[in-house]
Amino acid sequence: MARASAETPDLSGVWIPDVKDQKRQEIEITPPWKPEVLKQIQHLVAEEKAGRPFLVLSHCMPHGMPSWMLIAHNAIEILVTPGRITMLGEGDGNRLRRIYTDGRAHPEDPDLTFHGHSIAHWEGETLVIDTVGIAPQAYIAISEAAGIPNNGDMHIVERLHLAKPDVLNDDLEITAPKVLTTTWKTTRIFRRYPERHYEITEGECAEEDLSAGKDEFGNDIFIPAPQGPYGSVHVVK
């Protein structure tokens, strides 16, 4: 059984994605999209430039895998406990990955979910995560305005290792035969706050669509906020 030991690095803490590097990769790197998928992506990029962004993150749904690792702007908290590593997202209670390190295998017929079923083992100082069972609707996104549903049968292998004491690299290998011609390899960078000082907050996405109000009995409740084409963000409330 692979397990964390004194030799394995401590990945616990609050990690902030390197958004500048995300942006660099968005501009400089094109995943190996199938030609018909590339046309869709090019259309989405043009729409964003025209000020009509497609909303990859709509309905307050999770980013899902692999987009959470690729494009999230919010902090991720990693908890290391016996037999399991847990990733908790700040931007919504529904960003949650349970990564089993107790030696179990994938289920034969996993229920399809946004984050899939993840098992992991240590190879030296690298945590190798294998993820299957991801819902076909989960996006492979290059930005919050450009992404394509993986359309099924996606398999993701990640190698997590500390590039520096407080810098975590996630080397992803994304195999999605419905939309990619070959496995897409990309590295995403996360930074732990210096001296482990951090703040992480609750982040319920739907909150922005609501305003504090009262019911007929004077109880404090949330009531729907006025809405515009981008939810309540550009609406006076």
């Binding site: 993150l57 919050e144 809405q227 515009g228 939810g231 963000v233």
Partner: peptide, 19 residues
């Protein structure tokens, strides 16, 4: 028009900065 937008808008809380 605003009612139609409001129905779609409810879903859009998290969005791109492209606007």
């Amino acid at each position: 028009a605003s009612l139609i937008l409001s129905f779609g808008g409810m879903a859009a809380a998290h969005h791109s900065n492209a606007a």
